[in-house]
Simulated scan of single mutants.
Amino acid sequence: MPGATKTWSPRNFYTQQRGKYEIEGSGERSNSGRRDVFWSLFTLRVFFTKHSLMMPKQYIAEVIESSTTELSAQTRVLNGSPPFGSFVKVGTSPMSIAMICDIITGSSEPNRQPVAYGKSEEELRKEQPQIFELLRTEIRAKIVGYSLDGVIRQLVPPHPPRLHDFVYVCTPEEVQTFTQQYDYFRTLAGIGGSLSDELLIAAIQQSCSCQSGSARACLIRIGKELSRLFRDDYDRLESILKRIVL
C-alpha cells in the first residue's frame, strides 16, 4: 500500500543496503558502497548475536516419573546428562530444585537389551546408526528444596514436578543462593548408603566453589554443620571430609 511502512527485518535491511552498493547504470561498485555493505553486515551480525543471547537456554531432560522426593527424566540427547551431583531445576510454581543422584543409559525398549559388537562408538555410528535410536539416557534426581514466589525453601515441595516438565541445569548464581543454607544436608544424609555421602561431597564442593570469599572459610563453616549432623558418627564425618577436593 502507498505510504505503508515496511516491517524491519534482516532481509529488508540487507536489501535496502544492497541497493546503495550498486551504482545505477554502470554496475560498478563505489568505495562508499563497500563501506555501506560492511556496516550492513556488521549490524546484521550484532542483531543475530543479540537475539540468540535472548533465546531461552535449552532444557537437558524431560520428566517421565516424579514424586515429592525425587524425579526421573529422559535426557534430550543420548549421554547428555550433567555430571553426578549437579543441581537441576524443574517446574515454575513451585520450582523444584534437585541433585542428580544417578545416570543410566540403556535400551528404550524393555525387551531389547544392548549387546556388545566389539567396535568403537564412532564405527557403530557409521555402520549401524539405527542402534543409537533405540538407546536413551535417564537421570534420577533427589529433590532437596523448591522456590515459590521468589523464596527458596530447603523442604519437600508441596507438589511433585509434573510429567513432561523440562529439566534445566541451575545457574551458578542459583546454586550460590541455594547453598547459602545447609538444611538440605540432612535430606541428603537421610538417603542412606554410600550414595548419600557421595551427594554430600558433591554438594559441599559446589557450595565452596560458588560462594563468595575463601573456599576454605566456606569449608570450615560446612565442617561445623556436618559435625553437628554426624556428632554420633565420627568415622562417617571423617570419611566425607577427607574426600573433599577444592
Rank of each mutant, 00 (worst) to 15 (best):
K89N: 14
E24V: 01
S26P: 00
S120G: 15
F132W: 14
D165G: 04
P160I: 05
S72L: 11
F132S: 11
T75S: 01
S214P: 02
G192Q: 02
P160Y: 02
T137A: 10
G150E: 03
V77T: 13
F48M: 10
F48Q: 10
S239L: 02
I139Q: 00
S66M: 11
R29I: 15
R35Q: 11
R153G: 06
M1F: 07
L155P: 01
I64H: 00
Y146R: 04
L219R: 03
S9P: 02
S9L: 07
R29H: 15
G80K: 06
A73D: 04
K224F: 06
R221L: 12
P172Y: 10
P157C: 11
C218V: 05
Q205W: 06
R231C: 10
E127C: 01
E138S: 09
S108I: 08
P129K: 07
S207G: 06
L135H: 01
P129W: 13
N12E: 15
V151F: 06
L237A: 01
G19I: 04
I23Q: 13
L44F: 07
Y168N: 03
S209D: 00
E70G: 01
D233E: 10
F47Y: 15
S32L: 14
T171D: 14
L163M: 08
G80F: 10
R45M: 13
Q17K: 13
M1G: 10
P129D: 10
A189D: 12
R112Q: 14
F87Y: 08
G193S: 01
V156S: 07
C101T: 12
F48Y: 15
E174D: 12
R34D: 15
N31L: 15
V46S: 02
V245D: 07
A73I: 08
G19K: 12
L188I: 05
T75A: 03
L135I: 09
M55W: 06
F185V: 00
T43L: 11
I103P: 03
P56Q: 02
L226S: 00
E225R: 06
N111H: 10
L41R: 12
S9E: 11
Q180L: 10
L44C: 09
S32N: 13
Q211S: 11
E109K: 06
P10M: 13
Q180M: 04
D102Y: 04
L229A: 00
V77S: 03
K142G: 01
L188S: 09
L226C: 03
E109H: 09
M99G: 03
E65A: 13
S239K: 10
V46W: 13
S52Y: 12
S147K: 12
G33E: 05
V167L: 02
R221N: 13
P94H: 08
I191C: 02
Q128H: 14
C101I: 09
T68Q: 13
T5Y: 05
P160K: 08
S107Y: 07
E122N: 11
D235W: 00
G25L: 06
I152N: 09
V245N: 05
F230W: 03
I104V: 15
S66W: 09
S30C: 09
E174R: 09
T68F: 02
R162T: 04
E22F: 14
Q180K: 06
R76G: 03
H51F: 14
A203T: 08
D197I: 04
P110N: 07
Y146F: 15
R11E: 15
L148V: 00
F230S: 03
D235I: 00
S239R: 12
D165K: 00
